[in-house]
Simulated assay, not measured.
Amino acid sequence: MSVLPTELCPLTTEQSDIIDLTRAFARDEIRRRARAVDEADTATPWDLWTKAAKIGITGCMLPTEYGGGGFTDVFTQCLVQEELCVGDLGIGNLLMSNGFFADPVLELGTEEQKRTWLTPLAGPDSPMSSIATTEPGSGSDAASITTTATRTTGGYLINGQKAWISNAGEAELYVVFAKTDPTQRARGVSAFLMRKDTEGVTFGEPMRKMGQRAIVCREMFFSDAFVPAENLLGAEGRGFHGLMRTFDISRTVLGAAATGIARAAYEYARDYARTRVQFGKPIIEHQAVAFRLADMRTRIEQARLMTWRAAKRLDAGLDATTEAAMAKLTASETAAYCTWAAVQTLGGWGYSREYPVEQWMRDAKLEEIEEGTSDIMRLVISRGL
């Protein structure tokens, strides 16, 4: 097991305990179910969700005043995310998904909204939640969404379509982003709290994906879906502000997720190389393999430290948009490299579904796409030059 560089950031007893808890859960529960979840293709692993909720993982990032575990700092969330994703990237991201829903509620919501919408997520029977932003014509460019929210008596009517929405149809609670002023870009975006059973909301069939199949994605369709005025998060036009803050956090946490799967690939390839004998000696003694493993370990350390830096800036209340983009870019491309390198180290066996590394290679690709592609991350970074 890789050792975290905690000499840089000494951990509290509580942080050490949550690492031990999530590391054991990843080893004993997640890893043994991962292949079956991947094979199931479009089925949510509710058994793992239920087990994780009962021991407090799915609500660990929520404030204690709403019944959560109190690990509201991004740094600790990164520690948890990395450990879970060593077990399986898709399952790890699924189990921490309530944090993505909570971020805009905490950023924009009233005290009443926070208590109403976050408290249920903290219990042992926690429902799933989701954020609905992406549309067929707008991915990383969230300001260009076309779903509308039109004022009506007592609230708003939502009309439009979303695509690639994680947990859509599985989740009970949603934050939906829509334009209250279609003539504006970012300043026209507002955020709304919505329940699954809202009249006028329908869901498409599960989308069949290359990897991270633990998270079911669907399209969402809104046809005069009524949302009460009290479900508006913040003021009209403030949704984009909340979304950008959410992106800074989610990109950082996804950096930790990508670091986790990269670490899993490195450890698996390293252990295999120690026992696989070719040309009369373990392949780890062959320079090409040893150098590849050295590259993997080095890149993982880089990814982790950049992720921790972004997390620490966020926790200090500093701007971290550039640092979050750098962390996600570095970690996601590290995950892509390390999973490829693991397949390469195992050779033909790595290409076989008998071993997990081929799945990890498929899973890792999404980290270079979600919450802003690598191209978008480079654009964000370049703006700070």
Rank of each mutant, 00 (worst) to 15 (best):
R23E: 14
F100W: 05
A52V: 04
A40P: 07
P104A: 06
F71Y: 11
N93C: 12
Q77D: 06
L108N: 15
E107F: 14
E111K: 08
R27A: 15
I57S: 04
F75V: 02
I18P: 12
F25R: 12
G56E: 04
A53T: 04
T116P: 04
A43D: 06
Y66E: 04
A40L: 08
P124G: 12
D41P: 00
P45F: 08
D73P: 04
E65F: 08
G67Y: 04
T22S: 06
K54I: 03
I57C: 02
T44W: 12
E83F: 02
V86C: 13
A34W: 05
E107W: 11
D41K: 13
A36K: 10
L118Y: 09
M128A: 01
L108A: 14
P124N: 04
T110A: 11
G59H: 00
L62E: 07
R23P: 03
P120R: 01
R33Q: 13
L94Q: 11
V105A: 10
D28K: 10
F71A: 03
C78E: 07
R23D: 14
V80Q: 06
P120I: 01
C60N: 03
Y66K: 04
I55N: 00
T50V: 10
A122S: 14
L94R: 02
A34G: 08
D28I: 08
P127T: 03
L21W: 13
F71G: 01
